[in-house]
């Protein structure tokens, strides 16, 4: 017993070194977020005069008042973001799992064709305008909530991950035995295979949830209806407006008027804080499966 634990023991110096390394790495990740949080609570005038600081002289909740009063738009965008993240994740995980499962079965006749179809999209795309036209003129879902969900439903890369995961974690003999016991294909999938896939589904779910939550590109290209803007796009728009208007690249008259109305530094940070809010909980929710998912594939292979 004693000997066995010795094998995995590391020397004191490397222990300290490794711990220190991870303390530093975590600090690099956490400190900027902390700074954003502090700035969002800092008095606007102080930021202009003294710059950013971890210990501001004057605290202020003005920024959050601004966020709530500019209110409707932001709250509405919040709702859109949550809806797309939840519905999008559920739909996309279903599509990906249902696509990956047959591909993982060695007795599926058209395996190669369907693998190729998925794989092909990873390398070649149709280009922006044809892509746009498919959604706007063929499917006619531009300016609907579905445009924020459909384009990311199928992800070839996730299908590949899922397929490999099913292959390694669900033995073919298990499926055979289910068949011998008289289970139909659907029953085999839902009662036998699916429960074994929890870690894989959690991994794909987390990634696709993050993808939906962080997306600003679909609203950028497809939406002209302000009611459907999501929180990330509102943020992107605000930041890019500020960058454009303050960079001096626009030498136009009357820009001054616009500049005077721009939200301040602290308001921008407040929006950033608000927008990372719920997604942080998603990590906690998925984490236990996530770690399992990472290790499981490696050993059982």
């Amino acid at each position: 017993m004693y000997k066995k634990s010795m094998i995995n023991q590391i020397s004191v110096t490397s222990d300290i070194f490794l711990n220190l390394l991870y303390v530093i790495l975590s600090a690099i990740c956490i400190v900027p977020i902390l700074l954003v949080l502090v700035i969002s609570f800092t008095d606007e005038h102080e930021i202009i005069m003294n710059g950013y600081s971890f210990l501001p002289e004057r605290f202020s909740t003005e920024a959050y008042k601004f966020v709530l009063s500019a209110g409707e738009g932001i709250l509405n965008a919040y709702g859109v973001s949550i809806f797309t993240a939840v519905v999008g994740t559920v739909l996309s995980v279903s599509v990906i799992t249902l696509y990956a499962y047959p591909l993982s079965r060695s007795n599926f006749k058209y395996k190669k064709l369907f693998s190729f179809l998925a794989f092909f999209t990873m390398i070649f795309g149709g280009g922006l305008v044809p892509w746009y036209m498919v959604y706007s003129q063929l499917f006619r879902i531009r300016n609907t909530i579905w445009i924020l969900i459909f384009p990311y439903l199928m992800n070839a890369w996730f299908v590949m991950i899922m397929r490999t995961f099913i292959k390694t974690s669900v033995p073919e003999s298990l499926i055979e035995s289910a068949k011998i016991d008289g289970a139909s294909e659907f029953r085999t999938f839902f009662s036998i295979v699916l429960p074994l896939l929890k870690p894989g589904i959690a991994t794909i779910g987390l990634l696709s949830c993050l993808g939906y939550w962080n997306d600003w590109y679909l609203p950028l290209v497809f939406l002209t209806e302000r009611k459907l803007y999501n929180i990330q796009y509102l943020m992107y728009q605000t930041l890019s407006n500020i960058q454009f208007l303050t960079s001096g690249s626009a030498n136009f008259s009357e820009l001054g008027m616009v500049l005077a109305d721009l939200p301040g530094e602290s308001a921008r940070m407040a929006v950033a804080v608000v927008s990372i809010g719920p997604i942080i909980f998603a990590y906690g929710f998925f984490q236990k499966y996530f770690i399992k998912g990472l290790t499981i594939g490696a050993i059982k292979g």
């Binding site: 950028l220 454009f244 626009a250």
Partner: peptide, 22 residues
């Protein structure tokens, strides 16, 4: 009547629409 922000958010929204003949 709609406004879509300035350069970085306006252009990527308008150009595909123009190209698609909306």
């Amino acid at each position: 009547y709609e406004c879509f922000g300035w350069g970085d958010t306006y252009t990527p929204k308008i150009n595909p629409m123009l190209a698609a003949g909306e």
